Amino acid sequence: MSSRKETIRRRALRVRRDVKKAGNDRPRLSVYRSSKNIYAQIIDDSRGHTMAAASSLDKDLRDQLKTGADVDAATAVGKLLAERASQAGVKDVVFDRGPFIYHGRVRALADAAREGGLNF
C-alpha cells in the first residue's frame, strides 16, 4: 500500500505527462498551492527555463491581500502572472494543475489568467 505522499506525487507526474503530450511545445503554466499561499509559474520545458512567475508572497500583492490562502489571492496572482507573461511575450500556454483538483483557488487563478490574456 502506497503512502499519501507517493499517491500525490504519482498524480502530479501523471497530470504533467498528459499536459506535456497535449502541449505541442507550448509553455506550461504550473500551479502550486499550500495552506498559506499560492504560487504559479510559466515554464518552457524544452529549455528548462522559467519565463514568468507570481505568488501571493510578491511584494506587489502582499500588502493588498488579507491572506494568501483564499480565492481573492489566487485571482490577484493569476492577473499578475498574465501581466508578466505578456511582458515576456507569452500568449499560449498549457495548464498544469499538478496534484490539485481544478476547483476553488486553482480555478480562480486559471480564470484570472485567462481574463488577463493567456490562452489555454
Rank of each mutant, 00 (worst) to 15 (best):
A82D: 04
F95C: 02
Y32M: 15
A88N: 05
S86N: 07
S2C: 09
L109T: 05
L13N: 12
A76S: 08
D96G: 06
E6P: 01
R107Y: 08
K59G: 13
T75Y: 03
L65H: 10
S46Q: 13
D72S: 09
K91L: 09
R26D: 00
D45I: 06
V77F: 10
A82G: 03
V71P: 00
E83I: 08
P27M: 01
K21S: 15
G78I: 00
D58S: 11
N24Y: 11
S2M: 14
A53Q: 09
G104R: 03
T75A: 14
D96V: 09
D92Q: 14
D72E: 09
A69D: 13
K5I: 12
R28Q: 09
I38R: 00
D111C: 12
Y102P: 01
A12G: 01
D72Y: 06
L65Q: 06
G104Q: 05
A85R: 07
A76C: 12
V77A: 10
G23M: 07
V19N: 00
R17D: 07
A82C: 05
D92T: 15
I38E: 07
D72K: 11
A112I: 03
Q64W: 08
G48R: 15
D44M: 10
S56G: 11
G104T: 02
S55T: 10
R17N: 10
L61Y: 05
R114Y: 11
A22E: 14
F120G: 11
V77S: 07
D60A: 12
R9Q: 14
L29Y: 00
A53F: 01
V94T: 09
S34I: 01
R105Q: 13
K20M: 13
L80Q: 11
A73S: 11
D60H: 05
Y32Q: 14
S56A: 10
I43V: 14
R33G: 08
G89L: 04
R97A: 09
D70W: 02
D63I: 15
G78M: 01
T75I: 11
L109I: 01
D63W: 15
D111P: 00
E115P: 02
G117R: 10
N37E: 11
S46R: 13
A85W: 06
D45L: 08
A76H: 01
Q64L: 15
R107V: 08
A110F: 04
D58P: 10
L61C: 10
V31E: 00
P27V: 03
M51G: 03
L81C: 09
R10A: 04
A52N: 04
